[in-house]
Write a protein that binds this DNA or RNA. Sequence first.
DNA 1: CCGCTAACGTAATCATACC
DNA 2: GGTATGATTACGTTAGCGG
Length: 153
Amino acid sequence: MALPTAPGSPLPAVARGGGRRKRLVWTPSQSDALRASFEQNPYPGMATRQQLAQAIGVPEPRVQIWFQNERSRRLRQHRRESRPWPGPRGPREGRRKRTAITQSQTAVLLRAFEQERFPDFATREELARETGLPESRVHIWFQNQRARHPAPG
DNA sequence: CCGCTAACGTAATCATACC
DNA sequence: GGTATGATTACGTTAGCGG
């Protein structure tokens, strides 16, 4: 079957490998803290995300995803109201430090990639356990790998 | 049932390390 | 300079919680 090439292309879940991470439900105080931080800077760097994550007791990758989604909502709202989006203001904060993935870790990931290009959450966690890498980095590795090594056919 | 939204996908791009 | 690859962005889609 034809694999997706368009952004956000629809595809049956079965073709994607199934189960997602269990959906988070923010408490009111967590939402307040996230929104307050967003008003300060919609493009937080690793240090800010880590500090916020620690403060509200959630993993940093969940905070990063929240900011991505919140920016999308705000951008769409601004576009709808024909208002300009300020974009990043001030000096950019530092990114996450580039993760050094070893040859043996790459070998494990590559083997898994050959079996399944869209590993579900359980599989990604298993790979994280095997490699010692964070699940979020495994997730990103698969995204980059899919983008740079399209499935033949 | 249905709206909202976390989770997740792509494409493009930025950043870093190495030669 | 060029290549390889991890990280971030915009933006669209999927799926699950809660009214």
